[in-house]
C-alpha cells in the first residue's frame, strides 16, 4: 500500500486513509455525501452500524445523488436505491442488483474503517 500524507482533510490522519467525520454525524439507515480527496462519495451507516462508501455519482442519471437514496436490504445484502430512477445497488460491492430495465452498471466502492468513533475511508478504490 502506498503511504499517503493527508493534508487537506480534518481529523486523524492515517496513512492511505482519510478521516471523514464522526460516526455520529451519519444517521443510521441514511446516506451522507462526503468530499474525499476532491471526489464526491456517498457514505452509508446501516442499522448494525456498518459504514459503506460508494460513489456519489448515480451512473444512470449522471447526477451526484446516491447518498440521498433509500437504504434497505435485499436478502442478506445491505442496499441503496438510487433516488433518481430507483436502481438498487449492493452497498458492500457496488453491484447493481436491480437495473430497473436498463443495462446494469456498478458503483465504485471504497473500504471504510471506524476507529475511535471516526469514519475513515481508504484513499484507494476497491478494485471491481
Amino acid at each position: 500500500m502506498t503511504v499517503d500524507v493527508v493534508t487537506e482533510e480534518p481529523g486523524l490522519a492515517l496513512p492511505g486513509w482519510v478521516a471523514v467525520c464522526r460516526v455520529g454525524d451519519l444517521s443510521p439507515e441514511r446516506g451522507a455525501a462526503a468530499l474525499v480527496g476532491g471526489e464526491q462519495l456517498a457514505l452509508f451507516r446501516t442499522h448494525t452500524d456498518d459504514v459503506y462508501a460508494v460513489q456519489q455519482l448515480d451512473p444512470f442519471s449522471g447526477a451526484h445523488v446516491m447518498s440521498r437514496g433509500i437504504v434497505g436490504s435485499r436478502g442478506d445484502a445491505p442496499t441503496v436505491a438510487s433516488p433518481m430512477y430507483k436502481q438498487v445497488f449492493d452497498l458492500r460491492t457496488g453491484e447493481c442488483l436491480d437495473p430497473a430495465g436498463r443495462e446494469p452498471q456498478p458503483l465504485r466502492t471504497w473500504a471504510t474503517d471506524v476507529r475511535d468513533g471516526v469514519v475513515h475511508v481508504s484513499r484507494h478504490e476497491v478494485a471491481a
Binding site: 444517521s27 443510521p28 439507515e29 441514511r30 448515480d58 442519471s61 449522471g62 447526477a63 451526484h64 445523488v65 440521498r68 437514496g69 433509500i70 437504504v71 433516488p83 433518481m84
Partner: peptide
Amino acid sequence: GERATLQDTNDHVMANLQKDG
C-alpha cells in the same frame, strides 16, 4: 427520528428532486 429514514428523497428534503440532482 427513525421516520426520516423511510422517506424518499423528495419527502426527506421536502422538495422535488430534478434531473441534475
